[in-house]
Amino acid sequence: MSEQMTIRVTINGKAYERTVEPRLLLSDFLRHECDLTGTHVGCEHGVCGACTVLFDGLPVRSCLMFAVQAHGHEVTTVEGLAPEAPERLHPLQEAFWEAHGLQCGFCTPGFLMTLVPFLEQNPNPSDEEIREAIAGNLCRCTGYQHIVSAVKLAAAKMHPDPSLRETR
C-alpha cells in the first residue's frame, strides 16, 4: 500500500475526516469511506455522468477527481438534496417521480446533481437547453423524453409564478 493522507471534506454540510490513499477516487471515497452510496459509479471515465456531484457548488464527475483533491472543499451529493427523504423530496425529485423521469434509477442521482444547479441558473429552460444540459448524462431506460418533461415540471414547481414559465 502506498502512502496515506488525512483529509477533511465537508459533504452535505457535515465534516468528514478520513485517512486515504491519494489514488482513491472521490466517487469511491463518497461510497466506501463515507457510506454515501447515492452517488453511482458507471463508466469511471467521465462519459456516463452517473457519479456527478457538486464540488464547491458546481457539477463535476466524482470519478475524475481524487478524494485528496477535495481536502478543504465542499461536496454535495444526492443525499444532500433532500435531508428529510423519504418524507420530503426536492422538487426536482418529486418531478422525476411524477413525470416518470426514471425507470431503473441508476443514472438518476447524476441527472439530479447536474440539473439542480442548471435550474437555479435557468429557471425557465427550453427543451433544447434541457437537452444540452443533460448531454453529459446517459440514461438507458427512458429515452430522455420523460426526463425533459420532469425538468419542465420541476421548473414549474420551483418557480410557480406563471409569468416565469411558458404555457405548458
Binding site: G49, R61, T114, G136
Partner: peptide, 9 residues
C-alpha cells in the same frame, strides 16, 4: 468541448 461537468474542471 465535452459536457458542462467536464468544463467545470
Amino acid at each position: 468541448i465535452a459536457h458542462p461537468q467536464i468544463r467545470n474542471r
